[in-house]
Design a protein around this nucleic acid. Structure first.
Lengths: 200, 200
DNA sequence: GAATACCAAGCAAGCGCTTGCTTGACAAGA
DNA sequence: TCTTGTCAAGCAAGCGCTTGCTTGGTATTC
């Protein structure tokens, strides 16, 4: 049905749809989905209030697009870290680093935070998709925790511990400032060492 | 200015102001502040849409009251645990248990979750108060982490580790179900043992 | 009869979204 | 080369509805 005249680089600034997703993500992260108006989003990309609806059917669809992008980015980043062929301890730290970087780095932190904090405003169908994908994501963490326990590096790999770990990482969106001295990778090193009870 | 006719038990169901706070807290937790309407809140306590304004000047004031109650409950619970004269390890577990219980138990979980997730909708003045109080709250955690390190039970008591710990606990609001087999106290025991690297 | 607690009704502003129309770029036909 | 037609992209205007909040009135209680 759609046939763009020339298939150019989709990251081009000329791609207005992507610009709307980025602007919406930014606003959803800053003020929340419900408190963000279409006029806010349109203004953020230099449009008038009716124009975003040329690219998206509803405001809800914009949220869905932002969340989708957040899921893909996080899953991909951690999957790459898990499959890089690293030895166990380094793999674990790399996964923590990938999760934190996707969550905190300038590029991508808006969509990731929207995924974490605004998914509840999705309709039931879209929410089910998010939950299913999150379950697949957590499988990777379940697996690495099993390996860590088998190696004797931790003593508990139960679901509660996995959720505590994910919580420790996800909560960074609430306190991490990008102007800090600590990079996401340094944070990952510090958290990993602490969890594995390594002496300094 | 306000002078209640009889200072009776404030948990009495006849205290409509407290009922509004509870109902609002419930809704703020479930749908978020911005997505909750005055009509929702009024309906939750059996009023018409204009009546809550007899007890609160604005919707924002309702949020402020809910957050205030959440802060007092959490601070008091953990403070009691910290000052109960327990030995170090037991004190730490008691503090974790108090924090989790305030966050997860039926009574109080709505206001606590609102404190954690909706404070950003407060105006700058009210927000400063929340931040100041949170800083005093975190002092208690900073202190116990220092003691744990001195005792050799952990190897890192830096700010990042403290924030990771608080994040692990705070994120439970996103996954804990009250119909679970695990109570907040059991969760506290499990998390404490894991962090202190205790063998099973 | 004053104070308390609420209701019925409604107002102004803002909301998501729709509509009819304009604009600039591009390609094809004469 | 000039016209003609098409299309993506967006604008101006506004519709119907919801929002937070106000107002005037009314039971009930002391």
């Amino acid at each position: 049905m759609k046939k763009p005249p020339i298939t150019l680089n989709p990251t081009e600034e000329t791609n207005r749809r992507a610009a709307i997703i980025r602007g919406a993500g930014r606003l959803f992260r800053d003020k929340g989905y419900a408190a963000t108006t279409i006029r806010d989003i349109a203004g953020a990309v230099g449009m008038r209030s009716g124009s975003p609806f040329y690219h998206f059917k509803t405001k809800h669809d914009m949220l869905q697009a932002v969340v989708q992008e957040g899921m893909e980015a996080m899953h991909l980043a951690v999957e790459n870290a898990a499959n890089a062929g690293l030895p166990l301890r380094a793999k674990f730290e790399a996964m923590v680093g990938a999760h934190l970087q996707a969550l905190l780095d300038e590029e991508g932190r808006d969509v990731a935070a929207t995924l974490l904090h605004e998914s509840r405003h999705l309709d039931p169908t879209a929410l089910r998709e998010v939950v299913a994908r999150r379950d697949r994501y957590e499988l990777m963490w379940r697996q690495v925790l099993v390996e860590l326990k088998q190696a004797g590096l931790i003593h508990d790999d139960s679901p509660a511990i996995r959720l505590f770990l994910l919580g420790a990482m996800n909560w960074t969106t609430q306190w991490y400032k990008n102007d800090r001295e600590l990079s996401p990778q340094q944070l990952a090193r510090q958290l990993t060492a602490f969890l594995l009870h390594e002496a300094p």
